[in-house]
Design a binder for these strands. Structure first.
Lengths: 158, 158
DNA sequence: CGCTTCTAGTTCTATTTTAAGACCAGTTTA
DNA sequence: TAAACTGGTCTTAAAATAGAACTAGAAGCG
């Protein structure tokens, strides 16, 4: 290709977020990190990702402050990768993706992993967006206020 | 590259979701669709995406039931792309990405678009995950129950 | 201790994606 | 009726990916 275009300067937090974790593998690595997978080899077999890809993704995610390395908790001389606070902030992104996938991409009888409440062992209910006064908000109830105006990527390239 | 590997058969809704909307552009197209952008040309200039890319992305998203085409609402002979119900289901994914981006990727003084409540014009509060009994759930309170066991992509390729 | 195996990578190459621009047919506007 | 706009397709080059081969250091084993 030509170099993949960056969304960083779009003035939109969605675009900037995707610039950081919007590639094919990052969110899956982060999902595994939430599930307690910490070692390079564990990630590799769990994801079925090429080692080279995994190595560069882990480097990128570390550089961007989403993962950090720590000495292995089993006492060996190896490293492990754990989520930073910024990385843990992606929890609701993963939950939202999971819930959408469950609802729209599976037949009733297809087996799939599910997220449960550790205390009650019950399935986690659906995420909801509420206004300050408690009203439930759907996409119809919201609107995006655009910023002053960056000319946008196309214009910026001219 | 070699052909990008698919995550569809991983038995994880997150993986399957990313298989469908996990590429570099899809979620940005969907974000624009939520903001009311409907025409090919509007999308192209708004995103700064190459026309060829946009055309294939729109075809994919339509094939996958996330967008659908409709006769243009301005009476011209052209088409427009609108979200299906399945596509609108991605609302909370966009909101979660937006909120993470706002919180972790911007300096206080950087301008950025923001999402507001149409009725009160107030910023939309943060998404929260709650248990059935109303307790707020964080990543520490949840656990993913894996499914019976697909051997995983690496093993499947052997 | 010495040998083998495991871990966590790096390097290499073939193939596919992507970006970006040229080109084009049908539609709308002047 | 000519000019410009819309919504694409086609072509090309540069870059990302997958997959395999290779490697240095750490662990396990007898």
């Amino acid at each position: 290709m030509a170099k993949r275009v960056s969304h960083w300067n779009a003035g939109c937090p969605v675009a900037r977020a995707l610039d950081v974790i919007g590639d094919w593998w990052s969110l899956l690595i982060i999902r595994d990190a939430f599930d307690g997978v910490r070692r390079f080899g564990e990630l590799q077999t769990s994801l079925g990702i090429a080692k080279g890809m995994l190595a560069t993704r882990l480097r990128d995610l570390t550089d961007r402050g989403i993962l950090q390395t720590a000495p292995a908790s089993d006492g060996s001389a190896y490293m492990e990768y754990v989520l930073t606070s910024k990385g843990r902030g992606l929890f609701l992104v993963i939950v939202a993706l999971r819930q959408w996938g469950e609802q729209h991409l599976y037949q009733a009888d297809e087996p799939r992993s599910s997220m449960i409440d550790r205390h009650t062992r019950a399935p986690v209910p659906r995420l909801q967006l509420h206004a300050k006064d408690g009203r439930r908000l759907t996409w119809r109830d919201t609107e995006v206020l655009k910023v002053a105006k960056d000319p946008g990527p196309a214009a910026r390239r001219r």
